[in-house]
């Protein structure tokens, strides 16, 4: 399954296969096509999120498949691509006990900035990431939140067009997390595309335009956030006039799940395997009840996520 975006694709990979041990594929014929914007990469532990990011960065060479990132082929354009992407790894990844300013300036230089420009931008991004006061200190003495922000500064120093962020809000306290999300929103608003791998689903709802859900090495669902949460909803809140009991019974016999929200005077119907409202109207017609209210049931990204990973995907 792949996400088809109207914008030009910044990531377009086909049939990516990564097999660490024989018979166990970390990525299994993975296809993904996403345009510019902020994308959440979701999946349970071991689903293949980090592996996918490393493949896109060229840190892992896949056994099969092809593709391009920012128009650069994964097979041939390592250096050109790496000048345009930034990477914030999940692990601590601080460069020895180098002072923050030197670490950031060095990776800036390695990314093609002249030394003076690298130092200037290192100061800027460290201030931007909230480490202005601590920029001369070694990362050894940094808190978890400061280390995350240092990694973000290192990823950002050469002004990439695309940022890969692996668990950016991991191990952060609520204040640190809020600060990190604010930073990411601001970076997004400056026109940098983000691909954020995370377990923290509320973070995705807060900052991402679209979501890619990976399970067992495959993309099993992808799309715009509003489409996933509302447009493709199979959950409906309805209020009927007439013999509601018979209507409910009929829907349950058809395998749909129903619960009654007495406080709102509504039924919450979750249609099994259906898109659209056709089964509701057919049941209402059969039971001679009138549907007086029909609104999409509000679903969170958590609902979408859990539904998706619980579905059997087979060859999807």
């Amino acid at each position: 399954m792949s996400a088809v975006e109207p914008k030009p694709a910044i990531i377009d990979v086909q049939d990516i296969v990564v097999e660490y041990t024989k018979g166990r594929r970390a990525l299994d014929q993975l296809n993904l096509r996403i345009g510019a914007g902020c994308h959440g990469l979701l999946g349970v532990n071991g689903a293949g999120k980090s592996t996918l990011i490393k493949v896109l960065l060229g840190l892992i060479i896949p056994q099969g498949g092809s593709g391009c990132v920012l128009g650069e082929s994964l097979a041939t354009a390592d250096d050109r691509l790496r000048l345009r992407v930034g990477y914030m790894p999940e692990s601590d990844a601080h460069l020895g006990d180098l002072p923050a300013i030197e670490a950031v300036a060095m990776v800036g230089e390695l990314s093609g900035l002249p030394p003076t420009e690298a130092t200037r931008r290192a100061h800027e991004v460290l201030h931007y990431c909230g480490l202005g006061e601590a920029r001369l200190r070694s990362a050894d003495g940094f808190s978890a939140g400061m280390r995350q922000r240092l990694k973000l500064a290192m990823a950002l120093v050469h002004d990439p067009d695309l940022l890969f962020l692996d668990e950016p809000a991991n191990a952060l306290d609520p204040a640190g997390r809020a600060h990190m999300l604010d930073l990411l929103k601001d970076i997004r608003n400056r026109g940098v595309s983000l691909l954020i791998s995370t377990h923290l689903l509320p973070d995705v709802s807060e900052i991402c335009d679209s979501v890619v859900i990976v399970s067992r090495g495959r993309v099993v669902r992808a799309g715009r956030m509003d489409e996933l949460v509302h447009g493709l909803s199979a959950t409906w809140r309805i209020r009927v006039e007439g013999e509601a009991t018979q209507f409910r019974q009929l829907l349950m016999e058809q395998g749909h799940s129903i619960r009654v929200d007495a406080s709102a005077g509504q039924m919450v119907v979750e249609l099994r395997g259906e898109q659209g409202t056709r089964p509701l109207f057919e049941a209402a017609h059969g039971c001679r009840v009138g549907i007086r209210e029909l609104v999409p049931g509000a679903r969170s990204i958590e609902d979408v996520f859990f539904e998706t990973i619980e579905e059997p995907h087979g060859d999807s």
């Binding site: 250096d79 000048l83 345009r84 060095m106 230089e109 390695l110 990314s111 093609g112 900035l113 002249p114 030394p115 200037r120 931008r121 100061h123 800027e124 991004v125 201030h127 931007y128 202005g132 950002l156 050469h158 002004d159 067009d161 400056r190 026109g191 940098v192």
Partner: peptide, 25 residues
């Protein structure tokens, strides 16, 4: 002042490093 500068996008993407990467490290 340096502390008043705000992170801004660059007008052009960086080119290949001027020095050899091993020498920078």
């Amino acid at each position: 002042a340096i502390h008043e500068r705000v992170y801004q996008r660059m007008s052009a993407p960086p080119q290949a490093p001027a020095s050899r990467p091993w020498a920078i490290i």
